[in-house]
Design a protein around this nucleic acid. Structure first.
Length: 747
DNA sequence: TGAGACGCTGTTTTT
DNA sequence: CAGCGTCTCA
């Protein structure tokens, strides 16, 4: 955390000699296409690189190559998807060349935007000490605004803060306006359009007034500064003479515009990506963007990397089969020279518990055979899919680290704590002030608002707090808070010392508010302390908690530990052995994925997951899953697996059960069907089926249907757009939601 | 105006 | 099985 790749003195005087006499980087480890990409010097370059095709290696070598040509490290910029990715690449580059590689600026778009906006943000009215807010902070602002605009009680079904923030963010990331978005995707909220627009307007003003930026603002504001200010654009563009963008398929239009502006004086941009691995459309990325690159940058050279060096042939055959079913044909077919290896193994577990036991058992076996835990990973679609497994691993004493899912900084008590820090960095941060005030006993939203108004009116918020005419019941609380803040402002204090002071003050509050589970939560505070110990700058700490939130490490007493990760967080990584769990329809793909684009993205997601494996790939699926209403239901195998040839993998556990199959009467997904037959009914017919299942208008009274758990039944009544009443032969009358129930028509 | 009880809903993925 | 929003009482 400490050594930022965007250091504070990020614009060093450029008086150093370039390293003209550095050793030339050996290119014997590269194939012809890779060499070509590495040796490319000026002008736009697009590298379309399949999974495991040595994309990272190519970038690493190119960094080293450029520096070897005498280009200064500070004139390079490496934009990656995570900070970890860029750190690792620059470390590898320094093994090739020397440690000057470590001076290359690298990190995420957001981290870069943060760095540049601290310096240039004043052009659009932001002070350099602005605070970055995360999603729940943003939702908090919506909450405050909702009540201050008295929109709260107004409607019975006013959209939640989450939905509102989703909409606002989506509009930004898709470069469209909120109204268009609403009519596109949220038509049912039409009656709230004006209220939502009002909220959006106040949300923007609130952030600006209090020196706050959300994730989208970082990008939007950077783009604006670069666009409107010629001098800034020149300066930045001159600073970053060579720009490299990794995972380009997951950038959105704003990010593309930023790259174009930053490269305005030289056009030296190298973009690397893979359209078949695009998995961030929910963030406004479109895999077609990568194809637009040549039109944004005329005379782009295009290089494809198609040889896979990562996986064995059986694994590659399966992953190729998965992606081949995609609606849209992608640009590459991967091949490998890695020989041998076993077919991927599909395990049919009875339920999530058995699935977890199977995996823990397998891992133990592999470990006994000498495979270190950190050569294995368990991947899943959603964070909570691993809960059962986490318990199982803990009981077996297998150390693991979980990535993705809930972040440490997202829990309420950590946010409480960080609010004190945020105020110290930016005393205009009303969101944090609000949070801190609400922690006081007998102070609620109304009182907090009044105090906030007084703080805002004053030049010295801390003084104003002390002198606020408090009511007797909570006067003591306010004075204590004022005293603590005063104490914290002492410039000689280190972040850890400040942590201790807040800790002492916060402890009683903490125990009062989280009385039911504060012992559990206090472990998180300990972990926060450890993290803070690595910092000497509060501002940096506060930035990082938003930009690179620390993962919740569940078991940390070992350096050799198993990785549990969401597929999204596993992007770009690889392991000897990979387990993909919860491969049941409704879990992977997630139940809310709609036919069409979303469904296709789920498929690419599975493709990304499976291509992480080098030697061994295990797929598991629970046949029975528990739904929220604690009912068990049969879950079909993920259609992405059901639709590919059974000969590509081996099965164990209970045998396949055709009764729970997807295609029902057509049984189009039986494994025996020849390749040609299946091709014609690929994704398209699957999607149709899915659509049909969700639309009650296609069902009539008297229609016979089957349900995977309840069996055969007759439609008795269509009670709504998506609800029907069915009388089942064996289970009687049920009301079913077509969003959840998997009904199929039968003759 | 704040605190606490109660019922509802809904549950990706990330910077 | 939450976390959230709404409702009621002090």
């Amino acid at each position: 955390m400490q050594n930022s790749l965007f250091p504070e003195n990020s614009f060093p005087a450029q008086d150093r000699q370039g390293s003209k006499n550095k050793p030339t980087v050996s290119k014997q480890d590269l194939n012809r296409s890779q060499q070509e990409a590495v040796a490319h010097l000026d002008g736009p370059l697009l590298v379309v690189a399949g999974a495991g095709s040595g994309k990272t290696r190519t970038l690493v070598y190119r960094v080293a190559h450029l520096l070897g040509q005498g280009i200064l490290p500070e004139n390079l910029l490496l934009l990656t998807f995570t900070r970890r990715a860029s750190q690792e690449m620059l470390l590898r580059a320094s093994h090739l060349l020397d440690e000057s590689c470590q001076d290359v600026a690298g990190g995420t778009f957001h981290a870069m935007a943060n760095m540049l906006l601290r310096r240039y943000g004043y052009h659009i009215g932001y002070a350099p000490n602005f605070t970055i807010i995360d999603r729940s902070d943003a939702e908090g602002i919506i909450n405050i605004l909702k009540s201050s605009l008295s929109l709260a009680g107004a409607g019975k079904r006013f959209p939640t803060k989450r939905v509102i923030i989703n909409m606002i963010s989506k509009a930004v990331n898709r470069s469209t306006d909120l109204e268009t978005l609403l009519y596109d995707e949220y038509e049912h909220l039409e009656e709230f359009l004006n209220s939502i627009l009002l909220l959006q307007d106040h949300y923007e003003k609130f952030k600006f007034a209090h020196g706050l930026m959300d994730y989208d603002d970082l990008l939007v504001n950077l783009k604006q500064v670069l666009k409107e200010n010629d001098q800034v654009r020149q300066e930045v563009s001159q600073r970053f003479q060579y720009i490299m963008v990794d995972e380009y398929q997951d950038t959105n239009a704003i990010q593309a515009a930023i790259v174009r502006l930053m490269a305005s004086t030289h056009n030296n941009v190298m973009a690397v990506g893979d359209d078949s691995q695009s998995i961030y459309s929910f963030r406004g990325a479109d895999f077609r963007n990568i194809m637009d690159f040549p039109s944004i940058f005329p005379n782009t050279r295009i290089i494809k990397l198609e040889e896979n060096y990562r996986s064995t042939q059986p694994i590659l055959s399966m992953t190729n089969a998965i992606i081949e079913k995609a609606d849209e044909k992608y640009t590459k077919t991967l091949f490998t020279k890695v020989e041998g290896g076993n077919k991927p193994e599909l395990y049919n577990a009875a339920d999530a518990g058995e699935e977890a036991r199977y995996i823990a058992g397998r891992i133990t076996e592999l470990q006994k055979d000498g495979l270190p835990l950190n050569e294995m990973a368990v991947l899943f679609r959603s964070g909570f899919h691993s809960y059962k497994l986490e318990i199982e691993l803990a009981s077996k004493g297998i150390p693991f680290e979980k990535r993705g899912g809930l972040k440490l900084t997202e829990s309420a008590h950590i946010k409480d704590f960080l609010s004190y820090f945020r105020i110290l960095v930016n005393d205009q941060d009303n969101l944090s002030w609000n949070r801190v005030l609400l922690l006081l006993d007998k102070v609620g939203p109304k009182t907090a608002q009044k105090i906030l108004a007084a703080l805002k009116a004053s030049e010295e918020p801390f003084e104003a707090l002390k002198e606020y005419p408090a009511a007797p019941v909570w006067r003591k609380g306010v004075l204590e808070l004022a005293a603590v803040m005063q104490k914290l402002k002492d410039p000689v204090l280190t972040p850890v010392e400040q942590f201790e002071i807040i800790s002492e003050y916060y402890q009683p509050i903490f125990q009062r508010i989280y009385y039911d589970d504060y012992p559990k939560r206090s472990r998180d505070l300990e972990q926060l302390r450890t993290i803070i110990a690595g910092y000497d700058s509060l501002a940096k700490l506060v930035d990082d908690t938003a930009l690179e939130p620390p993962e919740t490490i569940v078991v940390e007493d070992s350096t050799d530990r198993l990785i549990l990760s969401t597929v999204h967080s596993a992007k770009g990584l690889e392991w000897d052995t990979v387990f993909i769990i919860s491969l049941a329809e409704g879990k992977f793909p997630v139940s809310q994925a709609l036919p069409g684009a979303q469904w296709e993205e789920e498929r690419r997601l599975l493709y990304v997951a499976a291509t992480r494996a080098k030697k061994r790939l295990y797929l598991t699926y629970p046949r029975e899953i528990m739904s929220v209403d604690r009912q068990f239901s049969r879950a079909p195998l993920s259609p992405f697996l059901a639709e590919i040839s059974h000969s590509l993998y081996t099965s164990s556990g209970r045998a396949h059960n055709q009764a729970v199959g997807y295609g029902g009467g057509s049984s189009g997904y039986s494994f025996s069907m020849g390749n040609r037959g299946r091709r014609s009914m690929g994704a398209a017919s699957l999607n149709q089926n899915k659509k049909q299942l969700k639309d009650a208008s296609s069902l009539d009274q008297g229609q016979a249907v089957t349900h995977p758990f309840f069996g055969r039944g007759i439609i008795d009544k269509v009670t709504g757009d998506r609800t029907v009443e069915v009388v089942f032969d064996r289970h009687g009358r049920k009301t079913l939601h077509l969003d959840y129930a998997k009904l199929e028509k039968i003759k």
